[in-house]
Design a protein around this nucleic acid. Sequence first.
DNA 1: CTGAAAGCGCTTACAG
DNA 2: CTGAAAGCGCTTACAG
Lengths: 338, 338
Amino acid sequence: MDRRPTIIDVARKAGVSKSTVSLVLQNSPLVKDETRAEVRKVMAEIGYVYNRVAANMRSSNAGLIGLVINDLRNPFFTEFATSVQMTLSARGYATVLANTNEDPDLQAQVVAAMIEHGVTALMISPTYGNEAATFSAIGRAGIPTLQVLRKVVSDGQQFPFAAPDYEKGGLLAAEHLLSLGARQIAFVGGFEGRDVTQKRMKGYLSALKAAGVAPLVLPGRPTRAFGREVARTLARDYPQVGAVICFNDLVALGVLSGCAEIGRRLGPELKVVGFDDIEDCAQVWPSLTSVRCDIAGFGLRMADILLDWVEAGQAPPADTTTPVELIIRASTLPKATA
Amino acid sequence: MDRRPTIIDVARKAGVSKSTVSLVLQNSPLVKDETRAEVRKVMAEIGYVYNRVAANMRSSNAGLIGLVINDLRNPFFTEFATSVQMTLSARGYATVLANTNEDPDLQAQVVAAMIEHGVTALMISPTYGNEAATFSAIGRAGIPTLQVLRKVVSDGQQFPFAAPDYEKGGLLAAEHLLSLGARQIAFVGGFEGRDVTQKRMKGYLSALKAAGVAPLVLPGRPTRAFGREVARTLARDYPQVGAVICFNDLVALGVLSGCAEIGRRLGPELKVVGFDDIEDCAQVWPSLTSVRCDIAGFGLRMADILLDWVEAGQAPPADTTTPVELIIRASTLPKATA
DNA sequence: CTGAAAGCGCTTACAG
DNA sequence: CTGAAAGCGCTTACAG
C-alpha cells in the first residue's frame, strides 16, 4: 500500500486546482455542478479519503470530543458513556474515551493526553481528589468542559455542571417507604462527604425529619459486595429496620443477593430501593424498585448541550438538574417474595 | 484565552530556533543539557502544550487507536473495552471508541470516521452482516486491524483474528456436567450459525457425543430476558433436563432469575453453567459456575499485540486462541439452593 | 466559478 | 550542538 491519495492527486487527475477540490470537499456552492461531479468521480476512482486531521490544523474544531469517566465498568457509567458517544457520533463527532478508575493521577494524565490530541471539548465525570491537577490544565488550554454526574469543582462559570436531581430521588424513595408504613428506614452505601452521597442522603434525611422518624446511615463502597455484607449486618444488628434506600443499584442488587443467601424475604421482611435504575433492576427477581435517572436520556442531553456550546459558542448554565422518578417494583411491594 | 503558544513562541522567548525546541520535545540527545533545561523552563512559564496533531502531520503515527465494539452495554464487552483502553493509555496511546450496537451500517460509518481522523490502527469486535462495507474501506486505507472475539472476515492474513478458546470452554462445561451425572444437558441461547455460537456449541456437542447422550439446543437472544423465558420453557416442556450450558453469562443470570421466580431449585433440580465469567457471576446468589475467558487479561494482551504490530511492523499470526478455564461455583454444586 | 499563495504547528534532513 | 528551509494535507482569503 502506497501513500494515501491527497487533494493534489485528485486535482491533477480531475484537471482542476486543489482549491477547487477543497471547495468540493466542503460542499461549497461556489463550485459548478459539473466540476463537482467530476471531482467526486475522480475521488471515488482513486480511493481518496479525507484527511480530517490536516484540515483541522488550518481551521480548528477537530471534531473530536474527550469523554473521561471515573468508573467505566460500573453499568451506570457504561450506559451513560455509550449514550454520549452514540449521540456525538450521530452529530458527526468522534469520541476519545478514557476510564480513570477513580485515580486522580491517571485522570490528570489522560486529560493532558486528550488536550495534546486537540480535542474540541471535554465531558468529564470526575473522580474525587486532586481536582486542581486536572482542572487547571483544562483551564490553561481553554477547552470547553462540562462536569457531569459529580460536582468536584465549584466554579460553574468556567466548568458548568449537570446531574439528575439526586436530592429529589432520595426524597421520593423515602416518602415511598414511609407511605408503605415503614418507620425504620436505613440509608446504606456511598462514601460520606462526597457530592453524590450527600445529595442523595439529603433528600432521605429531610423526608424522615418531616415524618418525625430517626435516620440510620451505614456508609460503604458503592458495590454489590458491600450490599451483600450490609444485608447480613442489617439482619444481625438492626433486625427492626424494615426498609433500606441504597446509594445505588449495585448496592441494592447486593442486598438482594445477600437476603437470598440468608433466607430473608424481600417485601414483608425488608423493603429495598435502589438508585439510578440500571437495566438489571427490571430483570432481577424479585425486581428492584429504583430511582430512575434516565441515564441514557441524560447522556443524550449532555452530548447535545456540549455540542451546542462548541458550535454556537453558548455556554450552558452553571448548574443543570434533570428530573428523576421513582419506579416501583416488587422489592417494595408488601407481598413480594424471596 | 488567546491562541495556544507554539514552539515559535517558546523559541523566541528562549532565544533558540524552533528546531531546537522541537528536538527538546523529542528528547533528542543532540541538545545540550543547559539548552534543554532553559527550553523546558520557558515552556512551563508560558504554558506551552504540545500539539500532537501538528506533529503527526509530518511524521505519521498519530498515537490514536480506534476501538469498535458491537455491544458496549454488555458487561462482557465493557470489561474488554475498558481493559484495552487502559492498556493503550499506559503505553501512550489514546483510544477513539465507538459502539455499533450490532448495526452494520453504523459500523461502516464509525469506521470511516475513524479513518478520516487518522487512527494508527484499529481493533474491532465486529457485528455480523455486510462485512464488506466495513472491511473493504479499512483495506483501502491500509490500516493495521485486528478482529477480536468474533471472526467475520476469514482473511486472517489481512485481518488477523484472536479470541478465547470458545470450543474448549463448551467442552469443559459439558464434561463438568457429565461428571456430575447429568445426562440431559441443554445448550441455551445464542443465535444459530454465528461464529461464537457455533464454536461454543461445538465443544458441547463433541462432549455429549463422546458420552453417548443426545443434545438439546434452544437458540435465542444473548440476554437476561431470554434466560428468564427459557427457564420457564425448560420447566414446562423439558422437565427431564437437569442441566444447562448457557451461551453467555447474561443468559445464565436470566435463567437464575427465572428459576427464582418459578421456585425451581438450582443445583438439585437444575444445574446452570454460564460462559465468559463476568464479574456478576461471583456476586449473585447462588453464585454461577462459568467458563472464564479472563476478558480483562485478553484485552490487555490484544492491546499489546496491536501496538507491537504498529511499532515493530510485525503482524500477529492469522489466528490466536487464548486459554479458558471452568470456574465451579454453587449453581452446579449438587447441594446448591435457590 | 477557479487558481496561486500563504499558513496551520510541527518534524526532518541538511548545513554549519 | 543549533539554525534555515522545506514539507505534511488541508483551508482561506485574495485575485482574476
